[in-house]
Design a protein around this nucleic acid. Sequence first.
DNA 1: TTTGATAATGAACGCCCGTTCAGTTAGCGT
DNA 2: ACGCTAACTGAACGGGCGTTCATTATCAAA
Lengths: 196, 196
Amino acid sequence: MARKTGSHSEITGPKIRAEAQRLFARHGFAAVSMRQIAAAVGVQAGALYLYTSDKEALLFDLLKTHMDELIAAWRAEAPAGAEPLAALEAFVRFHIRFNLERAEVVFLSYMELRNLSEENFAVIEGLRKTYETELEQILMAGQAAGVFLIPDTKLATMAIIAMLTGVNTWYREGGRLSRATVADIYWDMVRKAVGA
Amino acid sequence: MARKTGSHSEITGPKIRAEAQRLFARHGFAAVSMRQIAAAVGVQAGALYLYTSDKEALLFDLLKTHMDELIAAWRAEAPAGAEPLAALEAFVRFHIRFNLERAEVVFLSYMELRNLSEENFAVIEGLRKTYETELEQILMAGQAAGVFLIPDTKLATMAIIAMLTGVNTWYREGGRLSRATVADIYWDMVRKAVGA
DNA sequence: TTTGATAATGAACGCCCGTTCAGTTAGCGT
DNA sequence: ACGCTAACTGAACGGGCGTTCATTATCAAA
């Protein structure tokens, strides 16, 4: 017993995060025990504490990494200096694609925020606000340019994000529509909703 | 000790449901113990079992009651034989108002479904589907009448409901906008989204 | 081949969990 | 005033929880 043959932190570390993400998404943070995560990884519970300070830090790490990657991915592919209409279309398609690709952690980031400490919650909320602002700025630019007709850009931001994120609740691989078709249809509805 | 002065099941029963709803919504089903609920009510944990068979039944009862009341309330106030446009407007305003009035249990019904047994989950899912169908039929009628221009009524149904329910995540009493104003703005966006 | 760092064990800590039940008190019709 | 029933207590059940730590086996550099 003790150290196992072929054991390395570069393997065990990611494995712990992956299994924690999977289990948290499936059963909920509070309903999953450290012993369950350890069993899924193939170690004893005590070994997890070589990789995380406590259970909440494990959740926070998953959410923080996700939000950072979400914002970075959008900024990397957002069309620089594009017309508001093209920028909005890019955002809609990006949001649907990215969130469907990472359904587990997206689910977590909507469901398990209340299990974070006050400070950690504030960090994630801040990153979410940052992401939302990216959309709101597109809407404001379009409104200013007369391309969009929006009664309230703040509400439109929340409405569009809720609508797009909602795809994750019903979309199933191999269903009636492909991801691309879903994105087409949602883009049509969003475009009309902002009066363009 | 034992029975308390002035104790009645017609008082304790609702009190248990109210406190359970409040605590489940605030901390999550799995994170709330029967002892916490009992303490909030002012009884010992064992007394809860005079009112519920187990913890899950307590949650199911809250969700089932809510869904029944949601559907009944909509059917009671849905304009009979109205034009699709008027029916859709009524639905939008109803959904926002009803969900804001019952924010706690609405939150529960979106977050805690996975804590139900398979059979209980199916019951709630069925009721949700029933409610969604009410909206979809309005959309189909409007589409058939040429009043709406919707690429896919199923997706439009999910999109609209996600968008409307999203109000609950950001709306705070005493904020910038009144409930009525929020409903006005959302109705404007929904109307445009369906091409009317 | 030795040796220090790394990765993991497994037992233990105190604590809380959902649920049951024999016993006790209050309400209330007679 | 009595007696039955409804309401609740408090202790107990077996079990799981997050976390710590002394110990041990493996890895990798010298």
